[in-house]
């Protein structure tokens, strides 16, 4: 555990130091990686710990982004109202969807979370007067905080996101190492055994579902401030599936893995889009390759390598 805390501290120190050496473009890419890292870690709580493969996780990200965007544009650009409202909406929607989704398992769970997510996509797409439809919400302003640095600048905004990322990682690490998190792992391994032991399995899964939605909402909040724009594509199945890919690519059930997976996918998208138009094709191939050759993720590969060299 101490080694883990130490490596976390080193990673944080590097992330704190990086703005000194990165260009403003690279810094904005890194900011995006951190935001998507929070999103992937939130899904990992469901997938990697509770064993619930949600294919609709974009719903909570998107709801939070739309809530913050709409409030900032139409009501008031007040951080202390908009930011909590985004989190609250994400948690509320996941609390509602969880009631439906958790009645099912396996493929049905995949299908139901997908369908519920698409309901929100349909609303964002169809209800033009509220959401702007396909055009989305443009020019969402960044918040003004009582700080000496304006968040409209790249470096202060990066640090703002980094603080949120560190807090989210710390909180999620606390959750998964707590008795609650251990019970989730038990449920992933054998639901029946946990039931026999007297655990209220449904309640554990439900709390995990809402927590995952809440953290996805945090990522959505940050993203709309970062991007200044949100469109229905941040609610749909492609985005939900990419979150699954990030988790699996990094290594489900490890927290740090999904954050790395998110960074790799964001980085690759940026790199490949610069050279060719066929990013979607490449992304499809990545899905297939990861499933075939790295089912336990990059973290799993590294562990295997380490285990082998030790043996």
């Amino acid at each position: 555990m101490n080694a883990r805390v130490a490596s976390g501290a080193v990673a944080l120190a590097v992330l704190i130091g990086l703005p000194a050496v990165l260009s403003s473009y690279q810094l904005s890419l890194l900011t995006k990686m951190l935001i998507f890292g929070i999103f992937a870690m939130s899904l990992d709580l469901l997938l990697g710990y509770a064993g619930l493969p949600s294919l609709g996780h974009a719903a909570y990200f998107g709801v939070a982004a739309y809530t913050v965007g709409l409030l900032a544009l139409r009501v008031a650009n007040n951080f202390w109202i908009d930011f909590p409202a985004g989190l609250l909406m994400a948690a509320a929607v996941s609390a509602l969807f969880g009631l439906f989704a958790l009645r099912t398992r396996g493929s049905y769970f995949l299908m139901i979370t997908l369908a519920l997510g698409q309901v929100l996509w349909g609303i964002a797409f169809g209800w033009r007067s509220l959401t702007g439809g396909d055009d989305g919400l443009p020019s969402v302003p960044r918040p003004r905080l009582p700080l000496p640095w304006a968040l409209t600048e790249g470096v202060p905004f990066y640090y703002f996101v980094l603080i949120c990322f560190a807090l989210a990682t710390g909180l999620l690490a606390l959750v998964v190492s707590s008795p609650f998190g251990q019970a989730l792992i038990g449920i992933r391994e054998s639901e029946r055994r946990m039931e026999v032991l007297g655990y209220d399995v449904w309640r554990y899964k439900y709390v995990a579902f809402v927590l995952a939605g809440l953290f996805a909402g945090l990522a959505g909040n940050l993203f709309v401030y970062f991007n200044g724009f949100v469109s229905p594509s941040y609610l749909n199945i492609v985005f939900s599936a990419s979150a699954l890919l990030m988790v699996i690519l990094g290594g489900a059930g490890t927290l740090v893995g999904p954050a790395i997976g998110a960074a790799v996918i964001v980085g690759l998208e940026n790199l490949i889009s610069a050279y060719m138009e066929r990013w979607v094709l490449v992304l499809g191939v990545i899905y297939v390759l990861v499933t075939l050759f790295a089912p336990s993720g990059l973290v799993g590969l590294v562990r295997q390598r380490l285990g082998r060299s030790r043996a």
């Binding site: 492609v238 992304l283 990545i286």
Partner: peptide, 14 residues
Amino acid sequence: ELPQALLTFGFLLI
């Protein structure tokens, strides 16, 4: 179900 979903979704994108 999870590898199946990832695989078939990859083919969907391709």
